[in-house]
């Protein structure tokens, strides 16, 4: 869902790039109180300069209607104490990521139909062998490097972390990860949106089962007690209503609930 963007501070480059989103731009801190009146539930507040944060916090404290709602994006790192206070005032706060989309790409992502399906920022967690990826609605997603690699023989290099294709690709050196592949495995909401976009012929139970099986790296003969032929017939749509016991075997081997088998 698209959100209203509110840009605080006088960053000309950010304002120019975000212009297609018709942001509320408020360069003069003395006028910030006016934008606080907007209070849209789905606002994304962007504060390009960390030097503006104490002023923002003061305004939040003094706002007669209480703190604003929405999400706060701070491209620069911020003092932990200040961040804790801001986190109490906003639904989500993203501050000082290691990698952030450029302003033009960020505008494209925030203005897209489904910003949550794009990755706008990233950070390495070297000690944990993981990445934090932030979606366009500022929700963070933790991904281990092992998961990011999948079964690929390639070698991701997290030291060369980057984002490409308007937030659709995570770059790890010479290794590229399709962000939608990570979302597909983690987020039922994304899977629902992805299924709506598919050709109707691919939305069958059999199609879903086949996608999930291959995503898990299983063959049709890898289901104990089920003949490979039976699995093949289900995938081809020749068995439209598999028995409960069959569904239970499939779900158990694939690691999902039986009622979710048709949602991939």
């Amino acid at each position: 869902m698209r959100t209203e963007v509110i840009l605080l501070g006088g960053d000309g480059r950010a304002a120019a790039a975000l212009r297609p989103l018709h942001p509320a731009v408020c360069g003069d801190p003395r006028r910030w109180e006016e934008v606080f009146g907007r209070r849209a539930m789905e606002s994304t507040w962007i504060v390009p300069s960390g030097s503006l944060l104490p002023g923002l916090l003061r305004l939040i404290e003094e706002a007669p209607l209480g703190p604003p709602r929405g999400r706060l994006l701070l491209p620069e790192p911020a003092d932990p104490g200040l961040l804790a206070a801001l986190a109490a005032a906003f639904d989500r706060v993203l501050a000082g990521p290691e990698v952030l989309l450029g302003w033009e790409d960020l505008a494209g992502a925030l203005g897209s139909r489904d910003p949550e399906d794009l990755c706008i920022a990233a950070r390495r967690l070297p000690r944990h062998g993981a990445l934090v990826l932030w979606r366009g609605d500022l929700r963070p997603m933790l991904v281990s490097l092992e998961d990011a690699r999948g079964r690929s023989p390639g070698r991701p290099d997290p030291r060369r972390l980057g984002l490409d294709d308007g937030g659709q690709t995570i770059v790890l050196g010479d290794f590229e990860v399709a962000f939608d592949a990570l979302l597909y495995e983690r987020d039922p909401g994304f899977r629902r949106r992805a299924r709506r976009r598919m050709h109707s012929a691919d939305r069958t139970f059999g199609g879903s089962l086949r996608r999930l099986r291959l995503q898990r790296g299983l063959r049709q003969g890898d289901f104990p007690g089920l003949a490979a032929k039976t699995v093949a017939r289900i995938e081809r749509g020749e068995i439209l209503r598999p028995q409960a016991r069959t569904l239970a075997v499939l779900a158990s081997a694939l690691g999902v609930a039986a009622e979710d088998l048709g949602g991939y």
Binding site: S112, R149, G166, D180, R210, R211
Partner: peptide
Amino acid sequence: RDRERLEQPHATVLHGCRA
């Protein structure tokens, strides 16, 4: 890309933030 959704086999056409 090195890590894609596996099924079905596909190439991705990319333009801006659309695919």
